[in-house]
Design a protein around this nucleic acid. Sequence first.
DNA 1: CGTGGACATACTGTATACATAAGGTATTCA
DNA 2: TGAATACCTTATGTATACAGTATGTCCACG
Lengths: 250, 250
Amino acid sequence: MAERDADRSVSQTVRAQLSLRDQILSGALRPGERISELQAVETTGVSRTPVRMALVRLEEEGLLEAIPSGGFMVKAFSERDIIDSIELRGTLEGLAARFAAERGVSARDLEPLKECLNEIDDLVRQSPISVEAFSAYVALNARFHALLTELSRSPPLIRQIDRASALPFASPSGFVMAQSALPEAQQILLIAQDHHRIAVDAIENREGARAEAIMREHARLAVRNLRLALRNRTHLDLLPALALVRTSEV
Amino acid sequence: MAERDADRSVSQTVRAQLSLRDQILSGALRPGERISELQAVETTGVSRTPVRMALVRLEEEGLLEAIPSGGFMVKAFSERDIIDSIELRGTLEGLAARFAAERGVSARDLEPLKECLNEIDDLVRQSPISVEAFSAYVALNARFHALLTELSRSPPLIRQIDRASALPFASPSGFVMAQSALPEAQQILLIAQDHHRIAVDAIENREGARAEAIMREHARLAVRNLRLALRNRTHLDLLPALALVRTSEV
DNA sequence: CGTGGACATACTGTATACATAAGGTATTCA
DNA sequence: TGAATACCTTATGTATACAGTATGTCCACG
């Protein structure tokens, strides 16, 4: 709001999409709530056409649900939906790792991945790990997962992984910040990083099954993080994605 | 064309989407070709707004690709893209089968699946198998895969499988018709049906790993069908989906 | 003859106006 | 007093008009 006629560098459609996504993830628009186009025009500052385009894209993204009689509502997710989405992402990343291992990867393509791992090492070796280090980890972790996905050199698979990771709670770093206040934090990060190294090692040695298995297991760390975060509900504010969860409301 | 002001039962957006998809799959719009909105208005008979909505949806569906400078073009696929898309679908269906097996399925939920299998049995036992029987198989096969997917009772996974199967060459029955002229036809159908039975058996006995493995292998039958069809190029006209393939043009 | 620039054409992105349908509320009848 | 119907309000679906930009072509200059 109040950022009317902002920079023209991005299209109105993208601006509406970003604004609406923010409103959904921040909880301003609650799950199950119908999204009025006119109201969205008010809050986003763009006209109805780009708003409608943004709504369609957000539906495809999985944040919205089409109402049979017309229009869209904010989608509600169960805890099981989140766990399944994480398992789904892990399965796809496992497939990407297997493709990379089976098809072979040049040392040159592996280099940025190893470099990324070294940078993560520098972070997780700190004790205790600062909040800034956690933020840096989130960025590097996202980069690692993106690089590994691309090693599959399979456009259809990369596309599907991107879609599966679009939901904030399904993304590779979705629940990392939730640990930042937990004593088990460093342990979990060390284990995650070990998974990373095993995955790269397996790909390098063309061990497809091993690469696939470790990436699947790696994703399950996110489920453990989620469960931990839900148990000690102290720092739930670090997880805006949980605004979409149906059962834990209020 | 020439079906202007048709029945109002479906929205203009859906009509445009169907019309454009037909044009793409029939080869009227060639891969790499830019889709002019005004031209689409001409051919679909609806105005620009629903045409634009349809274009966005077809992009999400994977048939179109956004051009950086604006607009959309028909996506081109390599043979490798097709194979990867099939492997991808198989992996997701494998996950669905594992979910079903691990979480347990009531006898009541398994019943329609078994009924479907019995109907397929009646078809594949014919010798030789008529073209009509092939068409019936395609429908029943699609039904079986849909039912099995739903057994996972995982909305996020079901959604992702639907998306992965949206591309015509990735769908469970994508290359079944290609065999209809081949001598190996009945063999392959019998094997496919055996896979079906094994999958249901594994789910019933809660053998998750087995259920997952057989569904993965099952999808690879589609790859074999594709390779067979490409080798004897006699009946390529049965596969409109191949209009999207880049390498085999001309 | 080739290359660069300018102009024209045509396309997409955006905004707004209009029509139709759905939902809610109020009133009336049983 | 409750339920059903009718009307009104408001939403979405669709169409079209306008503006800005990209692309292609043509001409001129090197």
